[in-house]
Amino acid sequence: MNNIFVYCEIENGNVEDVSLEILSKGRKLANQLNCKLEAVVIGTQLNNIESQLFPYGVDVIHVADDPRLYPYTTLSHAAVVVNVFKEEKPEIALFGATSVGRDLAPRVASALKCGLTADCTSLVIGDHTENKTGTEYKNLLYQIRPAFGGNIIATIINPDTRPQMATVREGVMKKEIVSTTYQGIVKKVDIGAFITDEDFIVKIIERHIEEQKINIKSAPIIVAGGYGVGSKENFKLLYDLADLVGGQVGASRAAVDAGYVDHARQVGQTGVTVRPKLYIACGISGAVQHRAGMDQSVQIISINNDPNAPINLIADYTIIGNVSDVIPKMIRYYKENSK
C-alpha cells in the first residue's frame, strides 16, 4: 500500500490547526491501511518544523524551504506538490478545506487528472463493487460530505485514480497527539528541479487582517439572541456556539435596541429575513415582527425560561431554561459528541 499524504498549511512559522487535525485523522487511516503518514510542508525558515509534526505520528516530512514560497501562492505550491506526488505516488492526499487548500487541491488534481472531493466532514475506509463490471475494490477512501446546500450527505469514491484526493473541513476532525517522542524522517525537496520563474508570476502586493462585513442571510445556522439574553457579555456565548457550528449570530430588535449587538444582525420585519437550516432563538419571546423574518427556517430551537413564549409555538424544540445555563451545555455536548 502506498502512503497517505497531508499538505500542511503554515502561518508565521506554525502549522495551522486544520493541518494538525487532518494529520491526526491521517494517522488513524494509515494505521488501518498499514501504511505511512507523510506531510508536505512548503514555506520558508522551516528548520524546526518537524518538532511540531512528529508528535502527530508523521513518518516522513517533505520540506520545501525557500523565501519565495511564503506567503502561499498557488502556482509555486502546486508545482512542488504535483512533483512530490508524481515521485511518491500517494494512495491518499488530504488538504484543509480552507482558502489555501481549496485553491491548491483542484489545481493539483487537474494536473494529475485525478478525482477530488471538496469539504469532507468524514473519511472512512471501505470496499466497493462496481455494479456494471463486477470489479471489486478493497480499502477505498469513502469521502463523505454535505451537498445540495446541506440537504444531502454524499459518499464519494475515486475507484481508479490515485491519489484519492479530498479537502477536509476545519474543526471536524479531532487534533490528537500520538506521542511526544514519535520520530520520523525529514526529506528536503529539491526545489530547483520543480519550480521555474513562471511559477512566481502572481505577486502578493499586500496582506492584512480585515473583518468581513456581517452577512447573516446566507448562514446555514443562526444563533439569535433577544432581550432575554440579558447583556452584551452574555451574547459572547452565542458567538461561541455560532463559531463552533459554523453559524452566524442574529438578534431581535429588542436586543439591538438594548445595544447588545450591531443592527446588521437584526432579524425580522425591520431587519433581514432568513431561512437557515437551523435557527436557535435564545431568550427571544417571538413577537410577530420577529417571526416574520425567521419562521421559514427549516428547524427552530427556542431556549426560553418562559414556557408560554409565543416563539415556542413555531419551534421544533423548546428548551425551558436560562440562556446562560443552556448554551454552555450545548457547546460542551456538541464538542463531546461530534466526530
Partner: peptide, 12 residues
C-alpha cells in the same frame, strides 16, 4: 474519476 457511492437525505 469521482463516483457517487451513496446519497443520504438529511431529515429536517
Amino acid at each position: 474519476p469521482t463516483k457517487v457511492k451513496k446519497i443520504e437525505n438529511v431529515i429536517l
